[in-house]
């Protein structure tokens, strides 16, 4: 089995959503290599792409799901969103209707995804300056109001694509690593980040691998 494939510490599932035609797949291919050789999106309704980046000394493997979002795949919608720690919600800055639909995509996320999912609003096709239909400020304000990160990208000339992905992955890393430390430590470690080993007489037996 993949020995090289396993060289990562965290595995973050990120879903790529937004109306079709906004350039999701282009964004993805700019950032990653495809996991499959085939057009799996048209057959199983999802395409996987991965890329590993380094965050604070940890190798974070981003597993990005590019979904077809088609009606016939709705039966497995729950599986698409379950366990996703991040979502890139993409619209086309030159097509206002794709921006209007952001609201519906957010609802979709609220319905199916984890509450703590990190969402980034991505205005793609920023190279189409002369055709802009969605002002940057408007989207920025909207993002702030809905507690989303915001960035404008161009998959065509690669502007901000790298930044969009690394930003969201860093943000996810922070939430995943801190959240667990915070809650678990409080629950089991006596409420402090540092645990002082007391000189107990016999060390407890580890209860790890369940047979």
């Amino acid at each position: 089995m993949g020995s090289r494939d396993d060289e990562y510490d965290y595995l973050f599932k990120v879903v790529l959503i937004g109306d079709s035609g906004v350039g999701k797949s282009n964004l993805l291919s700019r950032f990653t290599r495809n996991e499959f050789n085939l057009e799996s999106k048209s057959t199983i309704g999802v395409e996987f792409a991965t890329r590993s980046i380094s965050v604070e000394g940890k190798t974070v493997k981003a597993q990005i799901w590019d979904t077809a979002g088609q009606e016939r795949y709705r039966a497995i919608t729950s599986a698409y969103y379950r366990g996703a720690v991040g979502a890139l919600l993409v619209y086309d800055i030159a097509k206002h209707v794709t921006y209007e639909n952001v609201e519906r995509w957010l609802k979709e996320l609220r319905d199916h995804a984890d509450q703590n999912i990190v969402i980034m609003l991505v205005g793609n096709k920023s190279d189409l300056r002369h055709l802009r239909a969605v002002p940057t400020d408007e989207a920025k304000i909207y993002a702030e109001r809905n507690q989303l990160s915001f960035i404008e990208t161009s998959a065509l000339d690669s502007t901000n694509v790298e930044a969009a992905f690394t930003n969201i992955l860093t943000e996810i890393y922070k939430s995943v690593s801190n959240k667990h430390v915070g809650t678990d430590r409080q629950g089991y470690g006596g409420g402090s980040g540092t645990i002082i080993p007391s000189p107990a007489s016999d060390p407890p037996k580890k209860q790890c691998c369940i047979p």
Partner: peptide, 8 residues
């Protein structure tokens, strides 16, 4: 929500 895009 979000499906299908009106212009497709």
């Amino acid at each position: 929500p979000g499906n299908p895009p009106p212009y497709a």
